[in-house]
Nucleic acid binder design. Structure first.
Lengths: 252, 252
DNA sequence: ATAAACCTTTACGCAACGTAAAGGTCAAGG
DNA sequence: CCTTGACCTTTACGTTGCGTAAAGGTTTAT
């Protein structure tokens, strides 16, 4: 039950260099180093490597894998179940791309033209994935999976126009934030408009709306450095301002 | 039907930077540059980009994509059919990994242990893929798809022991080449053993064996720089020697 | 005419290793 | 016992496919 680099590498399908690299960055340390300086891996490390490979399969960065697996709340069994769902999503993305390939073949051989935007169906899913990779981790960590999963599900069903409109709304929120901030008053008409626009934007990704959830999100913006940085980019203190504007709008 | 960078990017799901990069490396050049230096893409480029994304989905390197698409014999329709098959393989690999995840969950919750090597089922497929990525392209180009596809199919069905044994045989071929070469005589007993061992090794990946195919492969070794480099690494002129030894063994 | 939203090129940065170099260790066979 | 070959080690530079400023020109809308 003890393995050297080469043996574990052969068993798992990764290279020796990969194992050494994982040791180097602290992602997977050998159980012990023997008297000659050789890395020796045991049971626990085998299971950890498997877990790492599952995450890697989902294109999670090694850094994120490290953070996830080192969280005190990390539950292997639960992680595996989540993996299963993600793999299913990945497979359905593949199915979509396969459908696009089929359609393209038919269009070439049948001579009937295809909408340009149709030609990229399935690839758009990648956008959603990437988005999740960028923001999903922290949101998941702090606010649970439910919100983001629902948000993704809705995104997926959206038409191009809807998507564009939503993007535009998001930008308008940004612009409004700047204007409203200039008034210095979170109860000003501009601030109210900001809150309204923000709600409108939210409706695109939220499956259900409640004042409490909206207010909770506003608080989250301030609490979460990532969101804070996002809104503070527009104007310093912008995050707090948008929170106050929303809370005022909601009468809280 | 004319698109600027941003528009095409949004439509296809790639970034603007990606399009500029593809232009830079010559993979996808815009149809024309307008008077202000802007990149303008047309119908043909849209289809090319789609094709590129299909290849990218299969993890083909951009360099290889370029070579493949610029071959005079490149047939879009055929390429798409091949894509479809590959995507199917990728999906079945995903299925295997999903099965491994399920098994792992059951093993954790049921408390029954799992073979260490079982834990990496599905990942091993990656090895085959990578191998193909490394050698497959040139072989395909020059000798058609049939051989390598069959070879992969057989590889997939192999047990760990078989695989190890094959690897070992491959190494023995190498060792023998050096010894046999030292005799300087492709009809020496050592050379005959080399040819025999080489046949034995071949049988692991070939579905059927014929003298002609074996001889053909020997010639291919010499003709193909990649293989030549591979065998000449052992001893200079090793490739020609192994060809002569095989031809002699086959009585040709 | 001014701002917003595009576009351009240049250039440095990054992840996740591959790959070579230079050398120590260990089991097996002569 | 000693050599050989297959392991092991560390160090370090190279690669792919972009992301991300920076610094500036163009177009469109108001």
């Amino acid at each position: 039950m003890e393995y050297t680099v080469k043996i574990l590498a052969r068993m798992s399908g990764v290279s020796g260099r990969t194992l050494r690299y994982y040791d180097q960055i602290g992602l997977l340390k050998p159980a012990r180093i023997n008297s000659s300086g050789y890395r020796i891996y045991g049971q626990k490390e085998v299971d950890q490597l498997q877990q790492i490979l599952f995450y890697r399969e989902l294109e999670v960065s090694l850094e994120d894998i490290f953070e996830i697996m080192n969280q005190p709340s990390f539950d292997r069994s639960e992680a595996l179940k989540s993996h299963y769902e993600k793999l299913k999503e990945k497979r359905s993305r593949l199915d979509k791309i396969m459908a696009t390939v089929e359609k393209t073949i038919a269009s070439i051989e049948g001579g009937k033209p295809m909408q340009d935007s149709e030609k990229f169906e399935g690839f758009k899913e990648k956008l959603i994935e990437d988005n999740e990779k960028k923001y999903g981790k922290e949101i998941r960590e702090k606010y649970g999976d439910a919100t983001i999963d629902a948000s993704n599900a809705k995104l997926r069903g959206m038409s191009q126009e809807d998507y564009d409109h939503m993007t535009k709304l998001g930008e308008e929120v940004f612009e409004l934030l700047e204007k409203a901030y200039a008034t210095g008053d979170p109860t000003s008409p501009e601030a109210v408009e900001l809150a309204e626009k923000h709600k409108e934007w939210l409706m695109y990704s939220w499956t259900s709306y409640s004042k409490e959830a909206h207010a909770g999100l506003a608080e989250m913006y301030v609490a979460d450095e990532r969101f804070a940085a996002y809104y503070d980019k527009v104007v310093d203190g912008g995050t707090k301002f948008i929170r106050d504007a929303i809370l005022n709008y909601l009468g809280m």
